[in-house]
Amino acid sequence: MITFENVTKIYKNNDKHSVCALDDVSFTIDKGEFVFLIGPSGAGKTTVTKLMLREENSTAGRIRVNGFDVSRLKKHRIPYLRRSVGTVFQDFRLLPNKTVYENVAFALEVVGAPIREIRRNVPNVLSMVGLTDKAKMKPHQLSGGEQQRVSLARAMVNKPPIILADEPTGDLDPATAMEIMKLLEAFNNRGTTVVVVTHAKDLVDTMQKRVLEIDGGKLVRDEQKGAYENESFGDEKDPVAGSSELVIPDLGVSDAFNELYSLDDEINALDSKLNSISKELYKFEKDTQTYQPPVD
């Protein structure tokens, strides 16, 4: 799903002083994985996300994301790469003059999705993130956690196979941060590949997912069910015990998700049935020319 093969990225500054942000980094993330990308500030985490979205191009090496040969992608194909990666940012990046509903719908509108699809998908994804009753509110009327859920809904509304979250919990308190993580996990349980760039030690330790650690532009650790700190160097405490003070709200989202998704499939089936019926009805009307709309 995501492959970095010997990727190097060198930023050239004007004063000929080059910075090597990534140095010969290789890793593979398979479909359906949940991966934390961690490391100190300036380690090169953001460069990885920028390369994945082709905001920057690699200096050497090869990057593949969801079937796109990213490093050789032609410019006009970049938008199609980005449609397959839902992105979430620390600062939410919501449009302040649009409602929650409009913010989510915006992601579908600008890729030219049919109105029918927008009307169906937006309420669905809003209910998945638990914001159905706040659809008409503006971002400034919401809490930070709610805003991030809107941003998550926007990232997921066109059902991308990958979610890339760059410090999604950076501005949130621990409990809210865990809510967001649980949502990401719920999406992951439905088959979406999730990559989370983070500094949040507690979250990484609690979630027990694969950890990729980058330091000084190099991949220094790739560990399944890893913790934030490399345990071979630290004490041997249970990573979950380290977050014992953290209150993890049990949202029960996973079950709700499965139910919602199956409902979504049912709705799709009904929708296409309705579509064909309305076509037949239209034909019937044209044939007979006697149809009168019902009067209230």
């Binding site: 938008p79 980005r82 449609r83 449009l95 600008v110 890729v111």
Partner: peptide, 17 residues
């Protein structure tokens, strides 16, 4: 610019923008 930035991230084509 905010709107344009988001449009880019969600995959709007250049011409659409």
């Amino acid at each position: 610019r905010r709107e344009i930035n988001i449009m880019k991230y969600v995959g709007a084509t250049n011409w659409f923008i």
